[in-house]
């Protein structure tokens, strides 16, 4: 199986020499009695795209949701271990989860715009974080967010129409714009293209590539090609453990682990 690979400059390959944006050490997660993650150690590099791959139920989405504490919503979910964001433990008691989520945004598998206008969808986050003073502020945030998400030209004449009326791909870009509007440092993406057609997927992938200039991106994907195309680092999860973590280039061309090799060449399961 041949894997396409975007050209990556040599300087970006020295993972170990860089400081992680996120540092995860010994993360265990339990759903009730069932353990979903086993001792996850991973460093997520700033202004890079890190993809998490692995078969369904391997815990990659669970881990992604640990990064902005979305698992807090689930009553039976229990977290152990340590995740540092810029050296600060995000599970420490003094951390306000609301502020954490303003720094770490998230885009979901299925586009989930609010049943409000496109405009209201964008200003929702900035408004609750008190980032808006007056109408011109809001207009500016809406315009820049939509431009950065590559949606501005398509929707600028119908900002007051409901976001749910857009096509699937547009809705997903609206959700990305909504996340960007809060000006986060990290954007988590949970299979952002799995509900989209190939054209919409290509647009989102291009967008991810542009966004990494300003944001750190962690993306969960089922598509090996997508991981290879958009990410610089890849982690392969299996049964709640990280089997292999390294540069995407190396994982896809020369995996060290046999399981990784089997999975990326499609011999798994």
């Amino acid at each position: 199986m041949s894997v396409q690979k975007t050209g990556v400059p040599m300087s970006e390959k020295q993972i170990s020499s860089q400081v992680g944006k996120f540092t995860s050490r010994g993360v265990d997660v339990y759903y009730g009695d069932k353990q979903a993650l086993f001792g996850i150690d991973i460093d997520i590099m700033e202004n890079k795209v890190t993809s998490l791959i692995g078969p369904s139920g391997c815990g990659k989405s669970t881990f992604l949701r640990c990064l902005n504490r979305m698992n807090d919503v689930i009553d039976i979910c229990r977290f152990e271990g340590e995740i540092l964001l810029d050296g600060q433990d995000i599970y420490a008691s003094e951390i306000d989860v609301v502020e954490l989520r303003a720094r770490v945004g998230m885009v979901f598998q299925k586009p989930n715009p609010f049943p409000k206008s496109i405009y209201e969808n964008i200003v929702y986050g900035p408004r609750i974080h008190g980032m808006i003073d007056g109408r011109s502020d809001a207009d500016e945030i809406v315009e820049t967010s939509l431009k950065r998400a590559g949606l501005w030209n398509e929707v600028k004449d119908r900002l007051n129409e409901p976001g749910t009326g857009l096509s699937g791909g547009q809705q997903q870009r609206l959700c990305i714009a909504r996340a960007i509007a809060v000006n986060p440092e990290v954007i988590l993406m949970d299979e952002p293209c799995s509900a989209l057609d190939p054209i919409a997927t290509a647009i989102i992938e291009e967008l991810i590539d542009e966004l990494k200039e300003n944001f750190t991106i962690v993306i969960v994907t089922h598509s090996m090609q997508q991981a290879a195309r958009v990410s610089q680092n890849t982690a392969f999860f299996h049964l709640g453990k990280i089997i292999e973590f390294g540069e995407t280039d190396q994982i896809f061309t020369n995996p060290r682990n046999q399981q990784t090799q089997d999975y990326i060449t499609g011999r798994y399961g």
Binding site: N68, M70, E99, M106, F108, F114, P115, G125, V182
Partner: peptide, 27 residues
Amino acid sequence: VPQSLRDGSYALGATRGETIKLVLLPA
């Protein structure tokens, strides 16, 4: 009201009260 709307709101850093007032009740 679909859980995905709650998730979307929480992921933007909304509190429970804000989510109820701004997303759930209108929906």
